[in-house]
């Protein structure tokens, strides 16, 4: 029997979250698969985008159609915006729909990399935080920028591991580590995660949560992958709380050499590395 350990709750925007996994809702093969993936993942926060209504379609393709009874927390994003002003407009529209006041600020500065525009992101964060939004900026993994975002009123900072949808994993764990070290608000690693291993790595670094979409939705089996991510994120968090060993250059035996049946000259050292 596996004992279960509670990891610390994540406090964000006045909420207490048990799950540190935020799931995006785009690119799933069908709404039914997405529903199952939600079940398998145990997520409490889902993201979605704001778009013009398809006036040629009578069918209600709104992502929220079957989700409202789940008691999830909704995190709309401002994707499609390329200026702070556009992001603010999208945030207001999303809030008007009555789904709360959380907003993921996503302001793309390049159609190729979809990397966030740091200047506009900072502006939007300041404006939206002042308007009472729980501002969650998606940002590049720049420790100084993340500090500035925090000062501008971000409720959490969301540095990308690598560009959106690339699945390249943590390109700069050093920077992420610095951001986490410095931050007084939660750090949610968003974008570029390729597999549960990347998620676990980020969590072990001390990230507060992971936001992923493509690696789940586009997996061969999104439902199983959703579960795998949930487990990896929990494992990473547990490991972070448990405290990993420091890295060493040379081996150290798991058993004390004292009392060894044989005596070799090399074994007489302390076993410690340099």
């Amino acid at each position: 029997m596996l004992a279960s350990y509670d990891t610390a709750v994540l406090r964000l925007g006045g909420r207490e979250l048990r799950s540190r996994f935020f799931l995006g809702t785009g690119r799933f093969p069908s709404p039914a698969v997405m529903q199952q993936a939600l079940d398998a993942s145990g997520v409490e926060v889902i993201t979605f985008a704001v778009r013009r209504v398809d006036l040629d379609s009578y069918e209600d393709d709104s992502i929220l159609q079957h989700l409202e009874e789940r008691g999830l927390h909704f995190l709309p994003n401002t994707s499609g915006a390329s200026t702070a002003e556009e992001a603010v407009r999208i945030a207001r529209l999303a809030r008007e729909a009555g789904l709360g006041n959380w907003i993921k600020i996503e302001i793309s500065g390049s159609p190729v990399t979809l990397l966030p525009d740091p200047i506009e992101t900072l502006k939007a964060t300041e404006l939206l935080a002042k308007e009472g939004f729980v501002a969650l900026p998606y940002t590049s993994d720049d420790p100084i920028l993340c500090k500035r975002l925090e000062e501008a009123g971000a409720a959490a900072v969301m540095p990308g591991a690598s560009p959106i949808g690339t699945g390249l994993g943590l390109l700069n764990p050093y920077n992420l580590g610095l951001i986490i070290e410095e931050a007084k608000v939660p750090v949610i690693v968003d974008a570029g995660i390729g597999s549960p291993k990347d998620a676990a790595e980020a969590m072990e670094l001390g990230a507060s949560a992971i936001l992923a979409n493509t690696p789940v939705a586009k997996a061969k089996d999104p439902v199983r992958m959703a579960r795998a991510f949930a487990m990896a994120i929990e494992a990473g968090r547990l490991a972070y709380e448990a405290g990993r060993i420091p890295k060493k250059r040379y081996a150290s035996a798991s058993s004390d050499p004292a009392g060894s049946l044989f005596r070799h000259p090399a074994m007489s050292s302390t076993g410690e590395g340099y």
């Binding site: 799933f28 704001v50 013009r52 992502i63 529209l93 493509t214």
Partner: peptide, 10 residues
């Protein structure tokens, strides 16, 4: 006039 709704997104 803009009429908007929510779609899947990350």
């Amino acid at each position: 006039i803009e009429l908007i709704q929510f779609v899947g997104g990350g």
